[in-house]
Amino acid sequence: MIWPVDLIIMLLVMVSGIGAIMVRDLLGAAVLFGVYSFLMCLLYAIMGAVDVAFTEASVGAGVSSVFFVAAVFRTSRRTKD
């Protein structure tokens, strides 16, 4: 673990997590959730959990983002909060 890289990625994870629940556009929230998931995968790879990292990258970031975009496409895109 190299601690400056670790701290920067953890800060980015917090920022993208807050952004994913604060943004008013649901498609933007889905894209920010994909960013959050990929940064989390980077964090697992730093901590040496390589298998968890590539499972998170393929399943967590890839398939989850596709699910969110499909659900937003079939429902409404705007939100009030």
Binding site: G17, A20, I21, L26, A29, A30, F33, Y36, S37, M40, E56, G60, S64, F68, A71, V72, T75, T79, K80, D81
Partner: peptide, 16 residues
């Protein structure tokens, strides 16, 4: 949050 998709995003953040 009152939107259902926002709630689901929150659930996923909790799990990760």
């Amino acid at each position: 949050k009152r939107n259902l998709v926002k709630k689901i995003i929150g659930m996923n953040i909790f799990q990760t």
